[in-house]
């Protein structure tokens, strides 16, 4: 007798744990051939609220980690992803990719994570400056993470879309609340399992599944989200987010790059979620040429 397979329950990922949506709702996206993929959590605004709380409490610790340590953790994500190729391959194909397309997407995703792992302790050196002020002060501008960043992931690219948006943001020390692709959500939760087993502290990345239109308003108006990465396809949604974001002056970035293209990875995507902090301190110059003492 053929063994009955165990089906995976797709839950959401908040604070390093996998709860079901508090709303108890679900939806069943279908692939191109009309086949139901799975029952997926239809996250509510309360799930978003919980995710932001988790992201906020993880922020301080993540931002203060040594850059080298963040680098190692991000690299570890790539290692874990490599080990789970088969599962992603299956999910991508189930969602409509050919085997070749799926393999390409997985390879690109792993390589992209490695790419950003390398940037974790380098982008600061590219974007920071020592500023030669005229007065007797030492002055430098350094990068600091913006805080909690909301991500509306691309509709296309179930895995590479998440990787391309989330990884540069956490590489820069921010924490993330991400809404996965509505029509291609399978990889999102499997990716969350990768994150959970790869030393990324709970709360650094939180992933919800559900309806963009429903959650948009709450992403935009939430006063404890500091920045938003909008990679969705709707100009109207972007405009709405821009208007809502004035509540606490969120930084809004529209991620328009094609994730399958090399141009969609660069340290400038890390810089998008950085604040420039400039520090001054006096320099005492005893006996210096300008000293009168």
């Amino acid at each position: 007798m053929e063994r009955l397979g165990i089906l995976k329950t797709y839950k959401i990922y908040i604070g390093g744990k996998f709860p079901r949506t508090e709303s108890g709702r679900y939806y069943s996206p279908k692939n191109a051939s009309g086949e139901a993929l799975a029952n997926i959590c239809l996250s509510s605004r309360k799930d978003l609220r919980n995710a932001v709380v988790a992201a906020r409490s993880a922020f301080g610790g993540w931002a203060e980690r040594a850059a080298f340590n963040r680098s190692q953790i991000v690299y570890r994500i790539a290692e874990m992803l490599e080990g789970r190729r088969a599962q992603f391959l299956e999910e991508l194909m189930k969602q409509g990719s050919t085997k070749q397309q799926a393999e390409k997407e997985i390879n690109l995703s792993i390589d992209r994570i490695v790419y950003y792992a390398g940037w974790c302790d380098k982008y600061q050196q590219i974007f920071s400056t020592v500023n030669p002020v005229s007065s007797s002060h030492f002055n430098f501008s350094a990068m600091e993470p913006t805080g909690v960043v909301g991500v509306i992931a691309p509709e296309e690219g179930s895995l590479i879309g998440l990787v391309s948006t989330i990884i540069p943001i956490i590489a820069g020390g921010n924490t993330v609340v991400c809404l996965a692709s509505e029509k291609l959500p399978l990889c999102a939760i499997t990716f969350a399992e990768v994150l959970q087993t790869s030393d990324v502290p709970g709360g650094v990345v939180n992933i919800l599944t559900g309806n963009e239109k429903e959650l948009l308003e709450h992403f935009g108006s939430h006063m404890d989200i500091n920045a938003l990465c909008y990679a969705g396809a709707s100009e109207d949604h972007l405009t709405q987010l821009n208007k809502l974001s004035t509540g606490n002056l969120k930084r809004i970035r529209n991620f328009e790059a094609n994730c399958m293209d090399e141009s969609s990875q660069s340290p400038y995507f890390i810089q998008d979620y950085q604040e420039v902090k400039t520090t001054w301190h006096p320099i005492e110059n005893i006996g210096g040429s300008t000293s009168t003492y």
């Binding site: 007797s136 002060h137 006096p282 320099i283 005492e284 005893i286 009168t292 003492y293």
Partner: peptide, 8 residues
């Protein structure tokens, strides 16, 4: 004493 502050 911060000398730069004194100079200012």
């Amino acid at each position: 004493i911060d000398k730069v502050g004194v100079e200012e």
